Simulated assay, not measured.
Amino acid sequence: MPSIRQFQVTFDCADPERVARFWCEVLGYVLPPPPEGFATWEAYNRTQPPETQGSWAACIDPSGVGPRLYFQRVPEGKAAKNRVHLDVRTGTGLAGEERLAVLEAECARLVALGAVRVQLLEADEENESCIAMQDIEGNEFCID
C-alpha cells in the first residue's frame, strides 16, 4: 500500500479570503496563483455564479514543503472548541526564559494581525511553554 505524503488542512469559516491572508502572514505562506487564463483571483471569481464567488481560498508554502491550507465558507459560525488545531512551531529547541521571550514576541506579532491571545501554558515536567491563541474567526491554535 502506498503511503500518503501530502495532505491539506481545511478550515470552515465565514470569510475565506480574509482567513487565508491571515494564515499567509502567520506562516509565511502565499496565495496560489489564479487559474490559467486569469490575471487575478478577483477576475476568476467574477466568472463564477454569485453564490460561489469567494466561497473558498487557499494558501500554500512557497517552498512546497508544508501542507496546503484550504478555507471554505460555511453558513454557520464556530460553535465549539476545535477538535484539531495547528501548533505554530516558533520556539523549537528553546527552553526557559529564552523560549518565553520568542513566544511572547510572536504572540505580539500575531495579535497585531488580529489573533487573540487566550492563555500562556507554562512549562511543566512533560511539556515546554506554549501560548494558546485564536485566529481572526476564533479557530484555536498554539504557538510553541
Rank of each mutant, 00 (worst) to 15 (best):
P2A: 10
R5A: 03
Q6F: 09
Q6G: 03
Q8H: 10
V9R: 12
T10C: 11
C13L: 08
P16W: 02
E17G: 05
R18M: 08
V19H: 09
V19C: 08
C24Q: 08
C24Y: 10
E25S: 11
E25Q: 15
G28F: 06
G28T: 03
P33T: 05
P34A: 02
P34S: 00
P34I: 02
E36A: 14
G37H: 09
G37Y: 13
W41M: 11
P49I: 07
P49W: 09
P49Y: 12
P49K: 11
Q53V: 03
G54L: 07
A57R: 10
A57K: 09
C59E: 03
G64N: 02
G66S: 03
P67L: 01
F71Q: 01
P75C: 02
G77I: 05
G91Y: 12
L94F: 13
G96C: 07
R99W: 10
V102T: 15
L103D: 06
E104C: 05
A105F: 07
A105I: 07
R109Q: 00
R109D: 00
L110H: 00
L110F: 01
L110Q: 00
L110W: 00
V111C: 02
V111P: 01
A112H: 03
L113W: 03
V116D: 13
R117E: 13
L120S: 02
A123H: 04
A123Y: 06
D124F: 07
E125C: 05
E126G: 01
S129N: 04
M133F: 03
D135K: 09
F141T: 01
